[in-house]
Design a binder for these strands. Structure first.
Length: 782
RNA sequence: GGGCGAUUAGCUCAGCUGGCUAGAGCAUCUCGUUUACACCGAGAGGGUCGUAGGUUCGAGUCCUUCAUCGCCCACCA
């Protein structure tokens, strides 16, 4: 009697989710998150060692809190890891954090501003140092959450993407690609934020509706005969264009019309005189021009409009830059406009055109403009030199990997999308004019300005440059790409005292480094870990970074190692708010994982992910469902509790030997004596199959169904009276209890990958009672 | 404009290679139980699987049309 009371005291009638944290500590202390320790354990226990199972876990951005999307990914990754560990594979889940250059720089800059500081005052080095500290602290917080969801990652191999060990490998890749001619420096149009004084990737911009103007301006032909013809055909002496940005006309280098536009056909090839600037520019034909839009004649400004830039490339037009990084007018323009802000210049130009009689009309319109995501300032497209990767040959190899099944994407609709992406891939701009990130390992002999001038003037020599600038060259004007800071430039003929090697100030696009994550974290091609754990088995990540990240990892992985970095790509959907909207700070509809852990426990949350977050589809947060899972977790606890409370201490030796006998039968396939055991075996095999196929929702549904509806409602209920009615220690009791115990243990094992906490908690209770050993996390299934 | 996907019970969604008398969770209703668990048990109601065609002995499942919705990419002079 007293014994029973003690047990009841030990096992409360509801599983307390707050004990999850102490269970995690037990695992950490066990050392089994490290694959070598598991391998050793398996060997010592006479188990067969299978080949390693590896996931290099997607590193979340180290600049904020984790959200339910992160914990979703981790749940799947951990389930795969735990399952494979229990199937005899030394398992490495390698964790880390991403420096997320542009996003973090924006977030941290905002924090600085709130404190009344800014990055320019701090300077590059101090900014970097402070930002590093900020990331380390954010990363630490994030790691707490990662542990809380139960992630069985090897923390001894934790990496930050700006770790010097990784930087070295990233630089090496750059260097090799540079030597292979896959990397080049080219002129390209970028989004410049005049406020933040930085280039922005497309992804860092938004569209916003703003009021604006639509100015109709006439460009007269240089030849009066053409003007006569135009007057007759078009109603004015010249060709009329329509623009929202008159100030950019100073940088026009052509007027384009659609080749099928009958109004303008005979003017193609003629020349017009660009008003105010007084430059002759040609009329060209390009299919990109929309006949319906405006007047059907498009002023082409390659330096300040993305579409015009492309047209310029096709037609080999000059690129004239008239706007600087701060949004002021500059370059070869009439003196009176220099230094003006673009709006100011626009007004001044409109006035002059009106006086010249070349302004037809101005419409007031509302239109969408591209703005900086961070400060909402309209961006200025400007042209500058950037670093590019010629990804076409890399994409072809990645395509081959998909076509030959070396990498498969789940769901397969996303695989089609990825194929389409690879087939239509464009050069990848990998440089950013930011501070937070890894500097591109390149030095300019004689300075960057000299190099770029020589690029702009391919016919010219260093001497020409010296003449034009009046400066003495301090280098060969060549690029030196090198793993370390170079001492010298072999091509420099001058004195070494005069040599100036200017380091590239641009940093790498974040994806260039995170794209190497699967092998950089394993020590690169020469690393011990690489030899053992590469290529990895699975890449599990969110669907929305398929092109940004997964595609890059495949290309860079194949380039660097000759092998595709992962056999399977598993994409989980986005976690959305209950009404289907995105969770965001501005909507204030986000739910923090910590809240959910507290209310329902990590297991309940995990089970919800497995059941509801299917690959390729979005998932709406439904607390009711998580709550339902909590009931199931508690059911497991109570079923276990029932069995433990109903056996007597004196029966344990007999139970142990009976359990061992059943286990032998299980292994030999001799289970004919018990329908329950046979069904459990079938069930186990089914779950193994589901887990192998990454069909988590079926596995989750199945374990619930089997445990609750079969094991609890039928098996336990049916034997209840038998157990209670028979004499303590009798064969009937021992047999019934042993079967229940065996089936319970087997169920705990197959459920463990999905719901690790409750299963380990019960396992530890069994261990205390002398009916189990060690940790469930390294027990072998089957 | 290009690409990918979705449309099945009140809600959120399963249903792999065609065999379903169409399932689950939650919600609803009825009854029961308070010495494993009310975070329980037994049971019930609820769907012509978006539309129109086609292939087939057989279609929620394959093909085509249309409609509606979502996501990604490009672009908007």
């Amino acid at each position: 009697m007293s014994e029973k009371q003690d047990k009841t005291k030990q096992m409360e009638s509801a599983f307390d989710a707050s004990t999850e944290e102490s269970l995690y500590k037990l695992w950490e202390e066990s050392g089994f998150f490290t694959p070598e320790n598991v391998e050793k354990y398996l060997k010592e226990n006479g188990n067969e060692i299978k080949k390693p199972f590896t996931i290099t876990l997607p590193p979340p951005n180290a600049n904020g809190q984790l959200h339910l999307g992160h914990t979703c990914g981790y749940s799947f990754q951990d389930a795969m890891g735990r399952f494979n560990r229990m199937m005899g594979h030394p398992t490495l889940l390698l964790p880390g954090k991403d420096h997320a250059s542009i996003q973090t720089e924006a977030v941290f800059s905002r924090i600085l501003e709130e404190q009344g500081e800014n990055k320019w005052d701090l300077g590059r080095d101090e900014f970097y140092k402070r930002c590093y500290e900020f990331c380390m602290s954010a990363a630490k917080n994030a790691q707490e959450q990662e542990k809380r969801i139960g992630l069985s990652a090897d923390w001894s191999r934790d990496f930050f993407t700006l770790d010097p060990r990784l930087n070295e490998i990233i630089n090496e890749t750059f260097f090799e690609m540079f030597k292979d001619g896959l990397i080049y420096r080219g002129k390209y149009i970028i989004n410049q934020c005049p406020h933040c004084r930085t280039a922005l990737a497309d992804i860092d911009t938004e569209r916003k509706e703003m009021p604006g103007i639509f100015a109709y301006i006439v460009y007269p032909f240089t030849d009066e005969k053409d003007n006569d013809l135009a007057e007759k055909k078009l109603g004015q002496r010249g060709i009329m264009i329509a623009t929202t940005r008159p100030e950019t006309m100073l940088a026009d280098t052509a007027v384009a019309v659609n080749p099928d536009d009958d109004r303008y056909k005979e003017f193609v090839g003629k020349k017009v005189m660009l008003p105010v600037a007084n430059r002759e520019i040609p009329i060209i034909a390009d299919e990109a021009v929309d006949i319906e839009n405006g007047t059907g004649a498009l002023k082409v400004t390659p330096a300040h409009s993305p579409i015009d830039f492309d047209i310029g490339l096709t037609h080999n037009l000059d690129v004239i830059n008239v706007i600087d990084e701060n949004g002021h007018m500059t370059g070869e323009i009439p003196e009176r406009f220099k230094g003006m802000e673009t709006i100011e210049c626009s007004k001044a130009l409109v006035k002059e055109l009106e006086e010249m009689g070349l302004l037809n009309k101005i419409e007031r319109i509302k239109h969408e403009v591209t703005v900086c995501e961070r400060c909402q300032t309209p961006i200025e497209p400007i042209v500058s030199y950037q670093w590019f990767v010629d990804v076409k040959p890399l994409a072809e190899k990645a395509l081959e990997a998909i076509r030959t099944g070396k990498t498969i994407v789940i769901p397969d609709g996303q695989q089609s999308a990825l194929i389409h992406f690879f087939e239509n891939i464009k050069p990848w701009c990998i440089s950013r004019q930011l501070w937070w990130g890894q500097r591109i390992p390149v030095w300019y002999s004689g300075g960057k300005k000299l190099y770029d001038w020589l690029q702009d003037n391919p016919e010219s020599t260093i001497e020409d440059w010296e003449e034009e600038t009046g400066d003495k060259a301090k280098g060969s004007g060549k690029i030196i790409a090198s793993l370390d800071k170079p001492e010298n430039d072999p091509e420099w003929k001058g004195s070494s005292m005069d040599l100036w090697l200017e380091e590239e100030s641009d940093i790498f696009d974040t994806w260039f480094s995170s794209g190497q994550w699967p092998f950089s974290t394993l020590g690169g091609r020469e690393g011990e870990d690489f030899k053992k754990y590469y290529p990895t088995q699975v890449m599990e990540t969110a669907r929305d970074i398929l092109f940004w990240w997964v595609a890059r990892m495949m290309m860079l992985g194949i380039y660097k190692t000759g092998e595709t970095p992962f056999a399977r790509v598993f994409l989980h959907g986005l976690i959305l708010a209950a009404d289907g909207s995105k969770m965001s700070k501005s909507r204030n509809n986000g739910v923090a994982p910590a809240e959910v852990f507290k209310k329902y426990g990590a297991d309940a949350l995990r089970l919800w992910y497995f059941t509801d977050s299917l690959p390729g589809s979005n998932t709406l947060l439904q607390e009711e469902k998580i709550k339902g899972n909590r009931f199931f977790i508690n059911k497991i606890w109570n079923a276990s509790r029932f069995i433990l409370l109903n056996l007597e201490e004196s029966e344990i030796p007999a139970l142990r030997s009976r359990l061992e006998a059943i286990d032998n039968g299980w292994k030999n396939g001799d289970l004919s004596a018990s329908e329950i055991l046979m069904k459990t075996k079938e069930h186990t095999e089914k779950i193994i199959e589901y887990m192998d196929q990454l069909r988590f929702h079926l596995a989750a549904e199945s374990i619930r169904e089997f445990f609750w509806k079969y094991f609890c409602d039928i098996c336990i209920e049916d034997t209840k009276n038998e157990i209670k009615g028979k004499e303590i220690g009798s064969d009937e009791r021992i047999e019934s209890l042993a079967i229940l115990l065996y089936v319970l243990k087997q169920n705990l094992k197959i459920m463990h990958p999905l719901i690790p906490y409750i299963t380990e908690a019960v396992w530890q209770e069994l261990t205390k009672a002398g009916l189990a050993e060690g940790f469930i996390m390294v027990q072998q299934i089957g």
